[in-house]
Structure formats: C-alpha cells, structure tokens
Design a protein around this nucleic acid. Structure first.
Length: 385
DNA sequence: TCTGGGGTCCTAGGACCC
DNA sequence: TCTGGGGTCCTAGGACCC
C-alpha cells in the first residue's frame, strides 16, 4: 500500500487475478479484500532502499560501468565482455539471487530502449532474454504493444494509434523526422533506439537533484493554522535532511496547498515561492522560511490595517512563535483570520494536501494541474474583513 | 472517513533586448 | 502596398519515468 495505506501500489499475481488494479484506493475494495482475505501490507521504503543498494553492489562486481536508473533498475554496459553475453547475464542473475535472495530479470540489447523491452520479455523466459539478432528483434517487436515501449506513455500511444502505429515494430519503421516534427526529439530518439542506434547514453554518475520535494496528502482534513504549520514544518525539515544527505544546498523554497480534489466541492490551490537569501540546507532555517511562506500563501496582498484583526494567541495554538519576527506575526494574524474565512466558505473541502519543496534554481517550480484561485481568495478575505 | 509520492526534460509562446 | 530581423530568457504546461 501507498503512503497512509491509501492505495494498492504493488500486487501479487494472485491479487492481480482478483482484479486489484494498480493505484486503486484500498477503501473502495473493502468487500473484495474481506471476501478473498487479501493481505494488505504497509510499505517500508527504508528497507527497499537498503535492499536496492545491496543489489546494485552485486551488479558492480560485473562491470564498473553501471547506471543506477531507479530503486529497482540498472543499466550495465557490457561492452568488451568476452564470451556469450547470455551466459554472463545468467551468472549475474544467479549471483544476485545468492547474495540478496532477490530474483531479477535481465534484458540484453544494443540500446537502453531495446534492453528494457528484452527485460520485460525475460520474465517469461527464464529471467534472461537477449535481443540482438535482427530476425528475433523483428519478431519480438511485432508482438510488443507500442504503449509498452519505454518512453511511450498514454498520450503518445493515443497519437500513434490514430496513425495506425500500434506495435513497437511499426514505430521502429516510422519516419523518425516526421515523429520529431509532430512530437519531440525525445519521441524520435525512441524510434532510433528501437532500430538499435544508441541515442540515450548510459549515465554512470548520478546528476545532482535539481529539486527536492516532500509532499503528503493529509489522512484527514486540516482546518487549523497550527496543524498546517506543523505539517509543513515537518516537510521542510525532511527536505532539508534529504538535501544534506545529498550534499546540496537550496537556493529557493516553495510551499503549496490544495483542497481535497476527490470531493465535489469548490476547490482551492495555491503556492508561493521565495529565493533564500543564502543557499542552505539548515533545518531550522528552512523550517522558519516554510512557515513564513505558509503565511504568505494566505495573506498576499491584504493590508494589515484593513484587516484589523486581533492577535490570536499563537502559542496557545502550539505554533512556535519564537520563529517569527514582527512582520511574520502580522502575517500570521491575518492568516488566522483567512483560515477562519476559508473554513466557513469551503466547509469540509478544506486543506487536504500540502508540500514543501526546495531547489537549486532561484525559483523552485512545482507546477500542479490544480487551478489556482489566488485572486478569489484575496477578494474573499478582503470582503469578509 | 479513507483516494501515493517522487522526479526529469522538452516545447511553445510571451516578454524583452538590440 | 509598404510595415526589420535577429536574438535570449522565462514560464506554464505537457509528457514521460519510477
């Protein structure tokens, strides 16, 4: 299950057979789960990260030229390996199982895209599948849905389908220039890769992160400033921790909040970014800015004097007021007021999601598809005050 | 009541510059 | 009818990946 045990994100073959869909909300499957006594387990990302490292270290014994692509995938450059590659890869597979107990699939090909396809095919072919013989490639790609190809997502699949391209073979034989004109260089690269022309290099050194984001949907709606600040502070300190782990400093910070998009009520979403005066990964520093941004989210553009609200006792709400200067205090007074107004107007559709992100660029961008109602928000606040 | 959480890159178009 | 011709930077949004 995903975070907060909300969704099914990994399923056994038995669960799949019972119709448990990828990403399906657990709470909508209560009956199914009970009827078939399906076992639901919380996820443990620290454990997976640790196991991943162990597997990757075993792979490193077989070639120094390795790109750790994700928590459970790696590309190995086998150029210059003597003897049949398939035998070599069978040995890799055996060694990984011996040392970690984890069964892996190995796909062998001239390009990353073909290797990914071969890897998928390996699952039904003894764990190792080679895709280097032209005739074999042709046959395999003819039976491979274009949507399964690495780099071809739902949008491209639909576009290709309209032009009669439904298999990987048809995409391979399409006009690459035409694909580039109609779509992008990325799509064109996929075509070349399917032809066996390496167009996506193996990246042995992992590039530094450009953004770090910590975001959570709340397990229940959040109504008070105290709860919001508390959550965002936790996200900010987690983000700071991640930055330090990676030896990075943030130059900007962004916070966004959203109402519950699954509810059929008026939606609100907003975000605010700042440049940090000095690049940092210091927890207290970043938490302080995060809380200030929360204030900015709500009160941007409202005159304090017009608001004319009384200072709420922030410490009785549990907010650490020693983090604020006078200006922050003023913002927060207005924020308290704004939260009140929003709670009245939006009712139980109130904040359900928040995040804190930091980045290397001057402005951190986490664009969301959710519409923003900043002006509406301000109108509301001004009108009510 | 409960509905995942991270990331990256590319492109089009507008603003702005000379 | 004529109406310059290049550029760069930034941002939003789309698309993809795990």
């Amino acid at each position: 299950m995903s975070n907060n045990d909300g969704c099914a994100i990994s399923r056994s073959n038995e669960a799949k057979a019972l119709g448990v869909k990828m990403g399906a909300p657990i709470h909508k499957m209560k009956d199914l789960i009970e009827r078939h006594r399906i076992v639901c387990l919380s996820s443990n990302y620290a454990l997976y990260g640790d196991m991943s490292k162990r597997v990757m270290n075993v792979l490193r014994m077989f070639t120094p030229q390795i790109e750790v692509y994700s928590i459970d995938e790696a590309f190995l450059n086998l150029e210059g390996i003597a003897g049949p590659l398939k035998d070599y890869c069978l040995r890799i597979r055996e060694t990984v199982i011996q040392r970690t107990g984890i069964p892996v699939g190995v796909g062998i090909a001239n390009t990353k895209t073909l290797a990914k396809a071969a890897n998928k095919m390996s699952k039904k072919n003894g764990g190792v599948f080679e895709l280097t013989d032209p005739a074999k490639i042709e046959g395999a790609l003819a039976n491979y849905d274009v949507g399964e190809v690495w780099g071809v997502g739902p949008a491209l699949t639909a576009h290709y389908a309209r032009r009669g391209i439904t298999t990987a073979l048809q995409l391979r034989d399409a006009d690459a220039k035409d694909i580039e004109r109609k779509h992008s260089v990325v799509a064109a690269r996929t075509v070349l890769e399917l032809r066996g022309v390496p167009s996506i290099p193996i990246e042995e050194v992992t590039p530094d992160k450009k953004n770090i984001c910590v975001s959570r949907g709340f397990s229940r709606p959040v109504f008070t400033l105290h709860e919001l600040c508390e959550s965002v502070s936790v996200y900010a300190s987690r983000a700071a921790e991640k930055a330090r782990e990676q030896g990075l400093n943030a130059r900007s910070m962004s916070v966004f909040v959203e109402t519950n998009r699954f509810k059929d009520v008026k939606q609100y979403a907003n975000s605010y970014s700042i440049e940090l005066p000095v690049p940092t990964s210091d927890t207290m520093e970043l938490v302080r800015f995060a809380v200030r941004i929360v204030a900015m989210l709500f009160v941007d553009g409202i005159e304090y004097k017009k608001a004319g609200v009384l200072l709420n006792d922030l410490s009785s709400e549990g907010v650490q007021t020693n983090l604020f200067d006078d200006e922050d205090r003023m913002r927060l007074m207005r924020l308290n007021r704004a939260m009140d107004l929003v709670n009245k107007d939006w009712g139980d559709g109130c904040l359900s999601f928040a995040s804190c992100g930091i980045g290397r660029s001057w402005i951190t961008k986490f664009s969301k598809r959710t519409p923003r109602y900043t002006s509406r928000w301000n109108e509301l606040a001004v009108a009510r005050t």
